[in-house]
């Protein structure tokens, strides 16, 4: 009995030793020389491997940084300035702070604003739907509502609101990795400046159709009237292809345009609520039903975003 045990122990030990020696030499032979800095940087990274920076993952990001020797072309949207500072420190560099960004849904075509014209019965995917036809509403540009963006988000920061049929971004969870913007076949989602105190003003519509067509498809469409552009004291708003765009680098958040928009397509979020009165005097320009709806619209987005 004991001899069997001894034989077993000895033979297995010898085998183990032999293999260890073989492994040692193989490891020596096939060793890959790598800059230890890559490992250091990778350890600093958030490790989400989301690809938001444009690299294949966090390690690829680290490799790219080390290879370039500077951080000019690299930025980790997930980790933000905190992480970038650490990375810069590890590399012995200084880095300029970047303003934090957030994903913004530029469509206001909720079920109430934009009536459905057909019922989509195919596979529930915006990409599939987009390849089939312009959409199940009169609007060719707006959100398709199948939630490809929510599936693309790795951080659970974007979800579909069953009531409006539109995606809602949770600004606290959003890392501005841009996956949702890439997933959206209509290009409805934009990465914008997060803003001071999270305050943002943006045009929540990208409909390039002429005013009447856009308006017919959706009550809250930008009709390209250009009033906002005229009102804006900072020349931050441009109207091109029948749709207004607010340049967030120029916008000073005066929110004058919000009150001016006849369809309520311009949203101001996270501003303290204020009396809806200023909207009333411009009744002559807006269609009869608008003022009431408009007053609501100024307040509505604030309420929506606060729930997040």
């Amino acid at each position: 009995m004991s001899t069997i045990i001894i034989y077993t122990v000895v033979s297995l030990s010898l085998l183990g030793l032999l293999l260890a020696v073989v492994l040692y030499f193989v490891a020596q032979k096939f060793k890959v020389e790598e800059n230890p800095l890559i490992d250091t940087i990778e350890a600093i990274m958030p490790g989400a491997n989301c690809g938001g920076c444009g690299n294949a993952g966090c390690r690829a990001f680290a490799e790219a940084c080390v290879k370039a020797g500077n951080l000019d072309a690299q930025f980790c949207p997930v980790g933000g300035n905190e992480t970038m500072k650490k990375v810069a420190a590890a590399m012995g560099l200084e880095v300029a702070e970047k303003a934090p960004m957030v994903a913004v849904v530029r469509c206001n075509g909720s079920c109430a604003n934009r009536a459905k014209t057909t019922t989509y019965d195919g596979y529930k995917s915006c990409a599939v739907m987009n390849s089939l036809y312009p959409g199940d509403t009169g609007c060719r540009y707006g959100c398709l509502g199948c939630g490809d963006c929510t599936n693309a988000c790795q951080f659970g920061a974007i979800s579909m609101d069953p009531e409006t049929g539109l995606p809602v971004v949770d600004q606290d969870k959003c890392t501005a990795c841009g996956a949702c913007a890439k997933a959206c076949p209509k290009g409805v989602i934009e990465l914008r400046n997060k803003g001071i105190k999270n305050r943002r003003v943006f045009v929540s519509c990208i409909n390039k159709d002429k005013g009447a067509v856009a308006r017919k498809a959706c009550k809250a469409a930008c009709i390209g009237c250009g009033k906002c552009a005229k009102t804006c004291p900072f020349e931050a708003i441009t109207v091109e292809n029948n749709v207004a765009y607010i340049d967030y680098t120029k916008c000073k958040m005066c929110t004058k345009c919000v009150a001016e928009c006849p369809t309520g397509a311009i949203h101001a979020v996270n501003f303290p609520p204020r009396p809806a009165a200023p909207a009333a005097p411009k009744a002559p320009v807006t269609p009869a039903a608008a003022p009431a709806a408009e007053a609501k619209k100024v307040a509505e987005p604030i309420a929506v975003e606060k729930n997040n």
Binding site: T118, Y120, G122, L132
Partner: peptide, 8 residues
């Protein structure tokens, strides 16, 4: 009423 639309 709304028509159904789907891929073939």
């Amino acid at each position: 009423k709304q028509l159904l639309v789907s891929p073939s």
